[in-house]
């Protein structure tokens, strides 16, 4: 086996590297999927729909005349206290100004402050205006906090606010441009490492 690996041609090594990094990437995604489906089946992971009233507001207040909330300064957020397993959040949001950075923080039993180590960036859906989502690795959380905008005075109207929305297998397995780039880079990294190992040991055989 090792001898075979050492005598592979460059092209074969390149293909092997590509295959390995592709399958590792897919494998990780599949493991995530299986863990989540199991958690859902056992009832640990539940889909919950929330409304504005469920949140504790900070630097935000109800809009005086219309639906929704208004940011009173540049660092508003909403908090939902809970005790549950978290896999992600999705919601619709209308805004009066572009919201700029949108973040999700969470606290755990050990990490009781909201900090950068427990944080994920909320991104807009590609094909649907106004829909936002974020996925996180399965975590037992004690609270989640959403920073929906960094623009003071922004008028936000949330709807369809879902915690732990269900995702299909294909949604798990899609390649975004980042994972494609990662596959490309890891292929080259593996290729370089295997070629180095080949190179290193062939001399000793001489």
């Amino acid at each position: 086996m090792i001898k075979k690996l050492l005598s592979l041609s460059a092209t074969a090594v390149l293909l092997l590297s590509l295959a390995v990094s592709l399958s590792v990437n897919c494998g990780c995604k599949a493991v995530d999927y299986i863990r989540e489906t199991n958690a859902r089946k056992s009832g640990q992971l539940q889909e919950i729909t929330l409304s504005d009233a469920d949140f504790e507001l900070s630097s935000m207040k109800k809009h005086p005349s219309e639906n929704g909330l208004v940011a009173t300064d540049g660092d508003p957020f909403i908090i939902y206290s809970c005790n549950m397993l978290l896999s992600g959040v999705s919601f619709r949001m209308e805004y009066s100004m572009y919201p700029a950075d949108m973040l999700l923080y969470w606290t755990t039993a050990t990490q009781t402050e909201y900090s950068n180590s427990n944080m994920a960036v909320i991104t807009p859906a590609k094909d649907e205006e106004g829909l936002f989502y974020v996925s996180v690795p399965l975590t037992e959380v004690t609270g989640i906090r959403i920073d929906p905008t960094t623009v003071a005075g922004n008028h936000l109207v949330f709807s369809d606010f879902v915690i732990n929305p269900e995702k299909t297998l294909s949604e798990y397995l899609t390649f975004d441009s980042y994972s494609l780039m990662a596959v490309g880079i890891y292929t080259l990294v593996l290729f370089a490492v295997i070629r180095f190992v080949q190179d290193f040991f062939t001399k000793k055989q001489k």
């Binding site: 100004m97 572009y98 919201p99 700029a100 949108m102 960036v121 991104t123 807009p124 590609k126 205006e129 623009v151 975004d176 441009s177 980042y178 494609l180 780039m181």
Partner: peptide, 20 residues
């Protein structure tokens, strides 16, 4: 690096000032 840090992370929310 997080995925949203590099050029592949550009999305319709990026560049809020410019877009406004």
């Amino acid at each position: 690096i997080r995925p949203e840090n590099i050029f592949t992370g550009v999305n319709r929310q990026s560049f809020a000032t410019r877009r406004s």
